[in-house]
Design a protein around this nucleic acid. Structure first.
Lengths: 199, 199
DNA sequence: ACTTGACATGTAACTACAGACATGTCACTT
DNA sequence: AAGTGACATGTCTGTAGTTACATGTCAAGT
């Protein structure tokens, strides 16, 4: 269902497009909230056409088909947004690693958490980049409408990543605090006041 | 793969258990990071037994089979935690709604965002409840080890929900600010200084 | 003796998704 | 004329996951 909605949303916001166009737009926008490859998109477009939610408006070179949203499609999209209370299926490998990490030794756990933090920081950087691009666009002055398309999701994503990064940092600090005295001194310059003896 | 890891993690943390036990534990703990029903768990346990990651340690009443983790299983779990850099497949109905919401009228968008905020607040309440339970448990003093099992994921979840709730509130405020002057006054007591006229 | 409900394990049918495979067009270069 | 690479659309196979169905045990109440 959601793939269908994502495609309807793209067509509603940006006007008619081909499967190829939609797949490209997916990568750079909606993919941050709902991923899909072309091998999923093409069959879905065919089904949606059969269901009357979209229609082929033109056929271009190289078998290119331009799809446009129909009134039925628009109604379906609106209905989903207004009536469908989303269910969040929790299924996240990062979170699973965070869950299981106490099964490792403290140093190992810290390494895993650092890797997670790096991953989130990279994603944050990517979202910040998008945010700059979106802010620079002409729609910054717009009152309301499709100029805000994607903007709220982007903002939520950025906030989320900040929270996760802070959480990972605190988790690392927490492990370091709890770790049984185990002074692995890598830098021989540090000699005094390094390891507080266990009480 | 991840379901397998989640099951190995439960067995490593809490010792031998039956499929039924594991399904129950899933619901109340790991399900917050990785969901799975019993119809997925039973076949997976059979496959894992065939692969030598777990073994039937005893058979009890009512066909109850007790699985325990094997050294191979433990190695597999450790390898995944240490070597596998997780990939976060973004696929979230909440985020998709946030993405598409500018296609609606301002009032409709606000209603949708409020519903999302409610959803996140409910999840936050649930996580806070778990947090209290976990803190109350005897492991609060423990230095490091399986007493922290699940604790970091829980903390990350709580931080995440806080961020999303704040984001939703700000998004609502943003829409109210951008909305073209449209003073729908529900409370007749409010009459003055309500609608600032458009310039 | 019978019924109810929690315990316990499984299978079947269907949908969603990922990754690889296949095909053909067109513009541009050499 | 032949080759290359971006454009463009699709199918196929395998896996993961959901929902519903099916079966049977045991304890406790009536």
């Amino acid at each position: 269902m959601s793939l269908r909605i994502a495609l309807l949303g793209l067509l509603a916001a940006s006007g008619p497009a081909s499967g190829y166009d939609l797949a490209k737009k997916f990568e750079t926008s909606v993919a941050h909230v709902w991923q899909a490859g072309h091998s999923q998109i093409y069959p879905e477009l065919a089904k949606m056409t059969a269901d009357g939610l979209i229609a082929i408006e033109a056929e271009g070179a190289r078998g290119r088909k331009i799809y446009g949203i129909t009134p039925d499609g628009d109604a379906e999209l609106r209905r989903w947004l207004l009536d469908h209370a989303p269910v969040s299926t929790q299924r996240n490998e990062f979170a699973l690693q965070a869950f299981l990490v106490p099964l490792l030794e403290p140093d190992e756990a810290i390494a895993v958490l650092r890797r997670m933090k790096d991953g989130w920081e990279q994603r944050l950087a990517e979202l910040e980049r998008l945010h700059v691009m979106l802010s620079a666009a002409e729609n910054a002055t717009e009152e309301w409408g499709r100029g805000r398309f994607g903007a709220y999701a982007l903002d939520l994503g950025i906030r989320q990543e900040h929270a996760l990064i802070a959480g990972a940092a605190d988790a690392i600090a927490d492990i370091e605090r709890r770790r049984p005295a185990n002074p692995v001194i890598t830098d021989p310059a540090i000699t005094d006041a390094a390891a507080s003896p266990a009480p």
